[in-house]
């Protein structure tokens, strides 16, 4: 039996004539990592802010653990950690003091919680440094430390990889993956980079212009990416004629190579190669090219740059 931890019911948020979020219904099950994808301004942050009770939806409702989210429902936040956009901390306080503030505001009795999270996020070298003197990456780590200090069961993260170097991104990704897999933490994570999120999200929702346009399990994502057979030959016109004779639609692409989208052709490049050799036009290139995740994402939202 699966348990829905995060649920929204047709939430919409309008600012005068701007539809920031429109009729978004989604659910995230326990232990799931839900990658919430969209371009800048698509409605990701608005949705996360609704989930955090920071803004009220114009219509619809959102729930965490079946409790309706509202600003006054403070009990709800005991098991929720969050990071919204660029993390900011009190600039005059040190890393340790900033975390001590959150330890107290979360009423954590164990004073070691601060040291433990400093160690976990590898902030030891900066523990006594004022937040205003931290690099962007370390500020991001401090933001994550604030979100994780109380070992929450639900995590709402808005672009958590901002400012992190590749090693940092990998480290955080592994940590989140471990939390979801081994501790049953439910993670809702927004990003505009599909390639990054798809590596560890178990489910993906794509939001565009305020609307949730697609939801899918990430293991099905690969299957949805378009594949093409790319063909090159010394005499491209002859090659095209042979391929047409075989019943394939081969179009020249921008790089002056022939592209075939037929699944049969993709499955049988050896047959095509044989026919071309027999037709006196042996291929100089024959490869199956798979659309990458970013292209799929852009195609899905119909944005410029995507493969239509």
């Amino acid at each position: 039996m699966t348990t829905e931890i995060i649920r929204t019911e047709s939430i919409s948020k309008y600012y005068e004539d701007v539809r920031a979020v429109s009729d978004v219904s989604l659910s995230v099950r326990k232990g799931e990592i839900y990658g919430f994808l969209g371009l800048n301004g698509a409605g990701k942050t608005t949705t996360i802010r609704i989930l955090l009770g920071m803004i009220r939806p114009t219509s619809g409702a959102a729930y965490i653990n079946d409790v309706k989210i509202s600003a006054g429902n403070t009990e709800l936040w005991k098991n929720v950690g969050s990071l919204v956009e660029i993390p900011y901390s009190y600039p005059e306080l040190t890393v340790r003091e900033n975390l001590e503030v959150f330890r107290r505001l979360r009423f954590l009795p164990d004073k070691r919680a601060v040291d433990q999270i400093i160690s976990k996020l590898q902030l030891g070298a900066y523990a006594d440094r004022k937040a205003k003197n931290l690099s962007l990456g370390n500020n991001q780590r401090l933001g994550l430390a604030k979100a994780l200090i109380h070992n929450p069961q639900v995590l709402l993260l808005d672009e958590p990889a901002n400012g992190l170097d590749p090693a940092g991104i990998f480290e955080i990704r592994e940590m989140l993956h471990d939390m979801a897999l081994n501790k049953g933490v439910t993670i809702f994570i927004s990003s505009h980079i599909l390639g990054e999120v798809s590596r560890f999200a178990t489910r993906i929702g794509i939001i565009h212009e305020g609307k949730l346009i697609q939801e899918l399990d990430s293991d099905k994502l690969e299957a949805l990416c378009k594949k093409r057979l790319i063909v090159n030959a010394k005499d491209l016109n002859l090659a095209q004629a042979i391929l047409t004779r075989m019943g394939y639609s081969a179009e020249k692409n921008a790089e002056d190579l022939l592209e075939i989208e037929s699944e049969e052709a993709i499955r049988n490049p050896d047959t095509i190669s044989t026919e071309m050799v027999n037709g006196g036009c042996p291929p100089t290139l024959l490869k199956v090219e798979e659309e990458d995740l970013e292209t799929y994402f852009l195609r899905t939202i119909g944005a410029e740059g995507g493969v239509k």
Binding site: G53, E85, Y88, K146
Partner: peptide, 15 residues
């Protein structure tokens, strides 16, 4: 102005 408001709104302590 320091953008710290967003961190203190979703806490188990009343605003």
């Amino acid at each position: 102005s320091d953008h710290t408001i967003k961190d203190i709104l979703s806490l188990p302590v009343s605003r």
